[in-house]
Design a protein around this nucleic acid. Structure first.
Lengths: 189, 189
DNA sequence: AATTTTAACTAACACCTGTTAGTTTAAGCA
DNA sequence: TGCTTAAACTAACAGGTGTTAGTTAAAATT
């Protein structure tokens, strides 16, 4: 119905500010100033500050969930699934750097949608865990504690949003190759 | 002079709240309530909310800097230095889980001490980078982009504070061994 | 040309923020 | 016992918070 153009601009500006200062430290007056308007004018397009956070975080969380579904159901070896996951994180972190910051740092300020978000996150982690466990079972992955492996991989992948924007020189394909290599085969020579 | 006992309790309670909600979302009334007193009473012991954040973050940053100095100057092989760094992060994340959250997520809200903090952090990362580069030079580490290796290792190590408190079953020694193994030798079998 | 819609505005609200000033209470010490 | 100190308290402040109500001006639609 309504053209959501202006609303999208507001969401984008909000995500950018949320990355820089965190959700709680950003005021609606900050956001309005960044867009060159007055705070009250924002409410012609959005319903609340909370809604901005919900929109930003949930859309990314759902994207992760959907893509993970494809990866886990594909008929591929563990190493390929892991590489696919690395690529997925690189893609989302590249396309939505600002949103990833909110997802990582401000998810606890979700209110109505907090429970839903946690369901999505737990499902994603459970799928990831099962891929690792299957890999260990089929001797494709070293027999270490799967929780430690999961933690280690997820920590790096979740932090990509901090790092990718600083290294624009690096193209996504070679980053994906190098990172997969380092995470899977280690750094030992 | 003054016994700092009560002040320490306040700093500790603050760090705990800052981890849960972030610096900006924690009010002095929240903090006081957590300690069973009124907000104004806090000011018998501390000078400002800002001072709490400074105290929490800077003490940890200095600890990292000091320990990194020992590690880099030791006459040890690259693999040993990396293991030492893993152990250092595990130690600090175990002893100061709450503080690590502030250091990771709220450093941008430092004001007077922001510049000093960034100097410490850049120094730490530069030392880490040089250890990796030397390892590559001496063929102890695979010849991948040192920036990617640094990013990957640091991401995992910086996230330990989120994970260690959830896995109290695991003792620090075996965690250190497993994690070093995974980070250095990879997860390939 | 008349009407509706879009998107800005000003003014104001009720409440929350960090912090200060001055006071009270009880314990430790002379 | 009288004095000092530690650590709480109440009351208040000046400014910031998200948000609402009602208005205006220009663009789009009829």
């Amino acid at each position: 119905m309504k053209p959501q153009n202006r609303k999208d601009e507001i969401v984008k500006a909000a995500a950018k500010l949320f990355k820089k200062k965190g959700y709680s430290a950003v005021t609606m007056r900050d956001l309005a100033t960044a867009l060159g308007i007055k705070a009250a004018s924002l409410y012609n397009h959005i319903n609340s500050k909370q809604e901005l956070l919900n929109t930003i975080i949930i859309s990314i969380a759902e994207e992760f969930t959907n893509e993970m579904n494809s990866i886990k159901n594909a008929d591929t070896a563990t190493a390929q699934k892991l590489t696919d996951i690395v690529e997925l994180h690189i893609k989302i972190a590249s396309e939505n750097t600002y949103g990833m910051a909110s997802l990582n740092n401000d998810w606890m300020h979700l209110e109505d949608q907090l429970e839903y978000y946690l369901t999505l996150r737990n499902g994603y982690e459970e799928d990831f865990r099962n891929i690792i466990k299957a890999g260990i079972k089929h001797k494709e992955i070293v027999d270490e504690n799967p929780e430690i492996i999961l933690f280690s991989l997820l920590s790096t992948l979740r932090s990509l949003y901090l790092w990718i924007p600083k290294k624009e020189a690096l193209d996504k394909n070679s980053l994906s190759k190098s990172l997969s290599h380092i995470l899977i085969k280690g750094i030992n020579s």
